[in-house]
Design a protein around this nucleic acid. Sequence first.
DNA 1: GTACGTGCAAAATGTTTGCATCATT
DNA 2: AATGATGCAAACATTTTGCACGTAC
Lengths: 150, 150
Amino acid sequence: MFLPITTIRERFQACGLRPTRQREIIYAALASAKSHPSADELLDLARHIDEELSLATVYNTLEALCDAGLARRLSAAGVGPCRFDADVSDHAHAVTPSGEVRDLPHDLSRQLLDALPQEKLDEVARRLGVAIERVNLQLVVRPDQPPAQS
Amino acid sequence: MFLPITTIRERFQACGLRPTRQREIIYAALASAKSHPSADELLDLARHIDEELSLATVYNTLEALCDAGLARRLSAAGVGPCRFDADVSDHAHAVTPSGEVRDLPHDLSRQLLDALPQEKLDEVARRLGVAIERVNLQLVVRPDQPPAQS
DNA sequence: GTACGTGCAAAATGTTTGCATCATT
DNA sequence: AATGATGCAAACATTTTGCACGTAC
C-alpha cells in the first residue's frame, strides 16, 4: 500500500529534495492514493499520520514534488481545486463533469497514446516552433448508470 | 472578425438563451478572440464595447454559454484562472507551463484525434462503465530551444 | 406581470507569501 | 553554522452568491 520509506528517500535524494518528515508523509499519502487528491484532501490523508501538518506545507511540498518531477498537477476540467498525481508515467485520465479524475486502465492508456502518430506530433512541434514535452489525454465522461432518481 | 449579431441571436435562440445585450457582447468577444481568454481578460475585451459590464455577469454568462454548449471551459495545466473557448468543435490545444493555451492547426488536430482508435475508446467506456462525451487532447509544450548535440 | 438577467458587494473557495522557528546538511 | 523547510496567519486570486433593480418574454 505505502511506498517503503527507503524508496521515498532514494527518490528524494535523486532529485535533491530534503527528506523531511512532512514531505515523506505527503509523498507517501499521494503515492498510495488511488484517487487524485487535491491539496486539501491530501492534508486530511496526511493528518492521519501527523496531526500537526499544515496546508501551506502541503502546497509547498506539492510544488517541490512537481518541480522535481515526482508528481504532476492535473487540471480537472477547469473546475474545483487542482489535483495531484504521483504517477508521472504517461497515462490518460477519465474526468467527470464534476471534476473527478480516474486513471484509465494502464494498457488502454498505452494503446491510445501509442496510436498518436509521432510524425504528426513532430509536425506540430515544427509548425508551432515548440518542443512537445508530453501529451495530455483526458476523456470527458459521464457515468453510465442513472442515479435512480428523477 | 466579429460574428454577425443575427448569427449570435440565432444561436442563442436555438439554445433557449435570452439575447441580452451583455451576453451578446461577451459571446462576440469570446468568439472573436484568437486566444482563450479568462473571465478577467474577457471583461477587459467586452468593456471596450460596454463600459458598465460587471465581472459577475461575465462569469454568469460564461456558465450559461457552457451549459448551452456554445462555449467550453479549458483547463490550462491547472494553473491560473480558467480559460474559455467559443470553438466547441473537436480540436487539440498546446499549453505552455505558464498556462497559455493555443489552438493546434485545425488539420493537425483532426489528424491526431482521428488517430485514436474508436474501438479502444469503446473499450474504455465499457470497462469504466461510463459514456465518453469527448476527448480532450493537450500537448504540453515549451518554446523551442537550440537543438542539443550528442 | 413574471421570470430571469444584471451589477454591486460580500462571501466562499483555492493558493501563495512573510516571517519566526525548527530541521537537515 | 548555514541553508532551507515548517506552521501560522495574513494576503492574494479566483469564483460564487444574495439582493435590489432592470429587461425580455
